[in-house]
């Protein structure tokens, strides 16, 4: 099980510095929540953890991200392999519109050209079961992925992410486009998945962070336009009861942000 360590990570979009000097350790088999006001760089930071940040033209980072002591930004590291090891679920459900439910789940494997159909079927079933979606879709695996409801689509995306058997799962506000019932299902799922995966979740919802995470990192920015910084990180119970920094306290008690 993989541990992630970010050392002095800064991230830019062109000349705009979005994240400054974040040093943070993410422990394996735990859920780490990143919270903070809009624009504080938590989504940017989570994207630096699997080299998705650089996909945006003009984006770059400084610092190092260690995956079990190996720097994923070192030269000779293949970003494609990094992303296979560190999966990601996005804010809005984004199933591939031209693919069926089955093909969506197996997309990561099929498009890497590694497996045959007979081997894919059990993996699809296991991934859908892992995402808590199997019972709902098992009779309609050939229907389009886009035919599912929003909450089901997001679980489909989780199934798609875990089908490639990553070590770490990054979730960028996975519930922000979902209703409370679907949100609850995803939260239950996160609790089940943390036995097998290291999970990092960005959320705007502080109750959600309190419910699902073991440790919490609070990001903030001074004024709009400034880069976001990490304020403090610690066990969730401590951050939500007696944080060290008064800005954290102000945020979690709802006095700003």
């Amino acid at each position: 099980m993989k541990r992630i360590e970010a050392n002095h990570v800064s991230a830019w979009y062109g000349t705009f510095k979005a994240v400054e000097d974040v040093t943070l350790a993410i422990e394996p088999k735990q859920v780490t929540a990143l919270i903070g006001p809009s624009g504080c760089g938590k989504s940017t930071f989570i994207r630096t953890l699997n080299r998705m940040h650089e996909v945006i033209p003009g984006a770059r980072i400084d610092g190092e991200v260690l995956l079990d002591a190996e720097d994923i930004y070192a030269s000779g590291i293949d970003p494609v392999s990094v992303r296979r090891t560190i999966g990601m679920v996005f804010q809005r459900p984004n199933p591939f519109p031209t693919m069926s439910i089955r093909d969506n789940v197996s997309a990561g494997l099929r498009l890497n050209g590694t497996r045959k159909k007979a081997e894919l079927d059990p993996i699809v079933e296991r991934a859908l079961q892992g995402a808590g979606l199997w019972k709902e879709v098992r009779d309609r695996l050939d229907r389009p992925g886009a035919s599912l409801s929003g909450g089901q689509q997001q679980r489909l995306c989780i199934a798609r992410a875990i089908a490639v058997e990553p070590q770490v799962l990054l979730m960028d506000e996975p519930c922000s486009a979902l209703d409370p019932v679907s949100t609850l299902r995803i939260e239950d799922l996160i609790a089940e998945l943390k036995d097998q995966y290291t999970i990092v979740i960005v959320t705007h919802n502080m109750q959600q962070a309190a419910r699902v995470s073991d440790s919490t990192a609070f990001f903030t920015l001074e004024v709009a336009g400034d880069p976001g910084r990490l304020v403090e990180v610690g066990p969730t119970s401590k951050i939500f009861t007696k944080p060290d920094d008064e800005r954290t306290e102000a945020y979690i008690t709802g006095r700003f942000g």
Partner: peptide
């Protein structure tokens, strides 16, 4: 992005 995040080249 979804495709890249699955480790698809």
């Amino acid at each position: 992005e979804a495709a890249y995040a699955l480790g698809i080249p």
